[in-house]
Design a protein around this nucleic acid. Sequence first.
DNA 1: CGCCAGGTTGTCG
DNA 2: CGACAACATGGC
Length: 271
Amino acid sequence: MSIIFENITDLDLRETLDCGQTFRWKELSDGSFCGVVRGKTAIAAMDGDRLTLDGADEADRAMWRDYFDLDLDYGAIKQELSALHPVMAQAAEFAPGIRILNQEPFEALISFIISQNNNIKRIAGIVDRLCENFGEPIGGTRPAYAFPTAERLAFLFPDDLAPIRAGFRHRYIIDAAQKVADGTIDLEAVRAMPYEEARAELMQITGVGIKVADCVLLYGLHRLDGFPLDVWMKRAMAVLFDGMSPDSFGRYAGIAQQYIFHYSRMHPELF
DNA sequence: CGCCAGGTTGTCG
DNA sequence: CGACAACATGGC
């Protein structure tokens, strides 16, 4: 079984799945990508303007359409953003197939707690081990695990997380899981809040500061006005976008941010 | 071996 | 309030 989406533009799987917004997709030898979303596995492949999700169920078509953000016109947004600054245009042209995924909110929360003072390769390893140790196994041809639920993680002790080797972040993960599981933080309510309020709500969690909160808002709650400022983005803003502020990118600032982040990381010689 | 990693926390001046 | 070490664990 598989799902096919026709006439897809502005989507490149490698650019989108390997640009630091998600850590759960693995590239296979034939260039396709294997991943798990909301407890469902799929092998994604692009052939021209056709996106195929092998192993996906037709009943989940709407979920996958939403996940890859296929109803948003990235071509138009790219044009709008590119007019703002020549380097912005260059960054968008460098990886024109980037889209902002609609990830599971709790997965984004935990993933970006893990990301702090860490490198992308190791983040992916820790997330893998978290799923293998605490996620529900998913039936299928290859072994796969859902992302663990908040309820599953909420009653663990830091040492229970030793197998995932996330170090000092163990207690942050558990605090986040507890606050989500007991309703202290309602992620769907956060989605609808004014930006500053949403950010403050997430920052109640130990281990969530401004940058992680912005990542959760952008990648987990699809707040495209979010603009996470990590070390790369701070350098880029200082060196390449002197005079511009996050606000000056408008309501799709988060998409601009992703083009710029990826472009900067792939061009370290600029800094 | 030393520096750094999509930061945050706790402490001190 | 702003600066700054400490934090676990590796990747390079």
